[in-house]
Simulated assay, not measured.
Amino acid sequence: MTHGPIETTYTAAPDRYERIGYRRTGRSGLDLPAFSFGLWQKFGADRSFATQREIILHAFDLGITHFDNADRYGPPRRGAQQNFGRVLATDLARHRDELILSTKAGNQIGPGPYQRGGSRKSLLSSLDNSLRDLGTDYVDIFYHHTPDPDTPLEETVGALVSAVQQGKALYVGISNYLPDRAHAAAELLERAGVPLLIHQARYSIYDRRPELNGLLDTAGADGFGLIVYSPLAQGLLTDKYLETIPDGARARDSAFLSPDVIDETYRRRTAALNKIAEARGQSLAQLALQWVLRRPEVTSALIGASSTAQLDHNLAALDFPELTEAELALIDEHGVHGTGLPG
Rank of each mutant, 00 (worst) to 15 (best):
A255I: 14
D247G: 10
L237C: 08
T2R: 04
D71E: 15
T238H: 13
I198E: 15
F256W: 14
S28D: 05
A272K: 13
G338Y: 08
T136Q: 12
G220I: 07
G223A: 00
A184N: 08
L273F: 10
T265M: 00
R96E: 05
T270A: 11
S300D: 03
F142T: 12
Q234A: 10
Q165C: 06
A233R: 11
Q108N: 11
V87Q: 00
L328W: 03
S119D: 04
I174E: 10
A192E: 14
L212V: 10
L160R: 13
A279W: 02
Q82P: 01
I303S: 06
A201T: 10
R86F: 00
I174V: 15
Y266L: 04
D239S: 15
I56E: 03
P149L: 11
E154P: 08
Y143I: 07
Q115K: 04
V292H: 09
D207R: 06
I100H: 00
S162G: 01
Q82V: 14
T238E: 04
G106W: 14
A221R: 15
K121F: 12
G338M: 00
H199S: 13
L328C: 06
F320M: 00
L328A: 05
L216V: 15
S122T: 15
R295M: 01
H95F: 03
K275M: 12
A201E: 09
T156N: 11
A233M: 09
A13M: 00
A288P: 09
P152A: 09
I227Y: 02
E333T: 09
I276P: 02
F43S: 05
L131W: 13
S125Q: 13
